[in-house]
C-alpha cells in the first residue's frame, strides 16, 4: 500500500502531463457552435432592416428549397470582407436571406450600396434576440437551412473564397 502511495504522485503527474500535451497538440478551438444544428429553426418574425428589402420571418425560410441565412452587421469588418463571396453565391442561384444585428436602417443601406446586396430578405434584430435564439455567438455567421426549415449547417466566421464550394455542396446536400 505504502509503495503504491509513493508512486501515486508521479502517476498523477504523468496524467496531467498527457493532458497538457494533448491540449497543446490540438488546434486552438474557441468557436462555440450552435446546438440547434439538426433542429428546426426557432420561430421569429423580424421587421425590415433595409429600405428596399422586406423583413424576415422563420416561416419564409421553409419554402421547400434550401436557403442560406447570413447573420451580419454593417458595423462588422469581417462582414464586409465576406460580401464578395456572398455575391458570388447569389450569382450561382443560391437564395440568401439575412439578419442584421444591432443595426440601423441607414447604416445597412449604406453597407449594401457599398458592398453589394445578395439578400432576398433582411430582418432587423435590434437586440440580438433572434441571434441568441439561434445559438449564434457573433457576426458574421451563416446557417444552411433545408426546405423544411431545419438548420443543417452552421458556418462560424466569414466565408472565405475557398469555403464557397463547400457551402454550395452543403446547400446541394440539403435538398
Amino acid at each position: 500500500m505504502k509503495r503504491l502511495l509513493i508512486w501515486l504522485p508521479l502517476a498523477i503527474f504523468l496524467g496531467f502531463f498527457a493532458l497538457f500535451a494533448s491540449g497543446l497538440l490540438k488546434p486552438d478551438d474557441r468557436v462555440i457552435t450552435s446546438k440547434l444544428v439538426g433542429k428546426t429553426l426557432p420561430a421569429f418574425s423580424l421587421p425590415a432592416a433595409a429600405s428596399d428589402r422586406p423583413g424576415l420571418a422563420s416561416t419564409e425560410l421553409a419554402t421547400g428549397k434550401p436557403r442560406l441565412l447570413n447573420i451580419f452587421a454593417s458595423w462588422c469588418l469581417p462582414c464586409a470582407a465576406e460580401a464578395p463571396q456572398l455575391m458570388a453565391l447569389a450569382q450561382q442561384g443560391v437564395n440568401i436571406d439575412a439578419i442584421a444585428i444591432r443595426d440601423a436602417r441607414a447604416d445597412v443601406d449604406r453597407f449594401l450600396a457599398r458592398y453589394g446586396n445578395p439578400y432576398a430578405r433582411i430582418g432587423l434584430d435590434a437586440r440580438s434576440n433572434v441571434q441568441i435564439a439561434l445559438g449564434s455567438s457573433g457576426v458574421p455567421e451563416s446557417f444552411v437551412i433545408d426546405g423544411k426549415g431545419r438548420i443543417v449547417y452552421q458556418h462560424v466566421g466569414d466565408i472565405r473564397a475557398d469555403d464557397v464550394p463547400m457551402i454550395l455542396q452543403r446547400l446541394k446536400d440539403a435538398q
Partner: peptide, 21 residues
C-alpha cells in the same frame, strides 16, 4: 513556448517525482 515549458515541466517535475519514489 508552451511546448518548451511543458518539456521543462516534464523533465524537472517528472524527474523529481521519480527521485522521490
Amino acid at each position: 513556448r508552451g511546448t518548451f515549458i511543458l518539456v521543462l515541466l516534464g523533465f524537472y517535475i517528472g524527474g523529481a517525482l521519480a527521485l522521490f519514489g
